[in-house]
Every structure is written in C-alpha cells, then in structure tokens.
C-alpha cells in the first residue's frame, strides 16, 4: 500500500507532468469505443404464406414458437424439439428447415411457407388430396412437416423418381411407418401436377 507522504506526492506529480509533456494532446483524445451491446429481444416482420405478420420475441425463441405460439398458426407441429424428427419443417425462402431448430431471428423478414399455405379444407392441394386417398397420414403428426418439404421438392423437380423422393424426405420420421404411402403420394402428385394423371 502506498503511503501518502510529501515525497511520494511530489514524485507522482512530477511523473504526471512529464507524461503530459510527452503525450501532449493524445492524452485527452483517446476515448475508448463504446462496448457492443448484445441483442436479447427483437421485433420483426415475418412474411408467412404471403402475409406480413409482426412478432416480438427473445433471442432464444425458436421459429416454431413464433409461428405456432406467438402468431397462432398451429398447423406446424413440434414433436421432438431436437431436430430429430422433421415434423416441424417449414420453408424459409423456399428451402426446408426445421423450425424447432432455427432461431426466430434467422428467419426475420424472410418468406416463410407453412402447411397453412398449402391448402385448406375447401381448397386442398393435390398433395393433400392424393395423400388422403393413399392414407399417407395415419396419425397425422408428421404430415405438416413432410408435406412442405415435398412441396419444396416438387417446386424444383416436377418429375421425381422414388429414390429422389426418398433422399429429399430423408429428414422426416413417420411414427406410423406410412413411408411407402408417403413416397407414392409425392411421386403421383408430381404426375397430377404435370397434368398426366387426374384425381378421381
């Protein structure tokens, strides 16, 4: 510990004077830049199925929580919440992502496509009609997920083979094991969309 004696005081004062003399103006000019502040809360617009919707969320909020809890679009189901099942898939700018495993801030301002955008009870998408006929949805928990991923596949490729469908839908688990029906649905829906087949 430093003692406040006259001698020490003079020493320190002298040092101060020499420093000022050497450094000159730079002593006063050096101002530390402000520390960056992290984001914990945000408010952003999500363009869900063409509709701009505003939500406020924390940094830790996942996209599924925004879509289903904050905005009330409950068609997208969350099952495992660990990116291990695929039930929660949505399209962000046309690319499939697991919404339970994407932070909401990643999708802020982007175009999101959920199962609600595919079709409703009065106006079913061919994928839903064919899937209904083939019983591709047993319990229906995984349906919202694979339907949008299949839509993304059909947007790119209107003539997918069964193997292409299998590799595109590899990230979806169906607890009822309706896999063969799902693959058949997507392959035959492509035929309907091409105009080569008709739903009776």
């Amino acid at each position: 510990m430093m003692r406040y004696s006259r001698r020490n005081f003079l020493k320190a004062a002298g040092a101060g004077i020499t420093l000022t003399a050497i450094e000159g103006e730079s002593l006063f000019a050096a101002v530390a830049p402000p520390l960056p502040t992290p984001i914990t809360k945000e408010r952003a617009t999500f363009i869900i199925n063409g509709k701009p919707l505003v939500a406020e969320y924390e940094a830790r909020t996942t996209l599924w929580e925004v879509i289903a809890v904050k905005l009330g679009l409950t068609g997208t189901t969350r099952s495992c919440n660990r990116a291990s099942c695929g039930a929660c898939s949505v399209l962000i700018d046309g690319t499939p992502f697991y919404s339970c495993h994407t932070l909401a801030m990643e999708a802020a301002g982007k175009k999101i496509f959920t199962i609600e955008g595919l079709g409703d009870e009065k106006n079913l998408h061919p994928l839903q009609k064919v899937g209904y006929l083939y019983m591709a949805a047993d319990c229906g928990f995984c349906t919202a997920g694979w339907s949008v991923t299949a839509k993304a596949l059909l947007d790119k490729n209107l003539n997918p083979s069964a193997d292409e469908v299998k590799s595109a839908l590899a990230g979806h688990i169906c607890r009822c094991a309706a896999y063969s029906a799902i693959v058949r649905t997507v392959v035959d829906t492509a035929a309907v969309l091409r105009g080569e087949a008709e739903i009776i």
Partner: peptide
C-alpha cells in the same frame, strides 16, 4: 451427413 434440412442449416 445428417438430413437434407440440417444440411441446409
């Protein structure tokens, strides 16, 4: 590696 959706992310 992994599934198509995870490869996108």
């Amino acid at each position: 590696i992994s599934s198509p959706e995870l490869r996108n992310a």
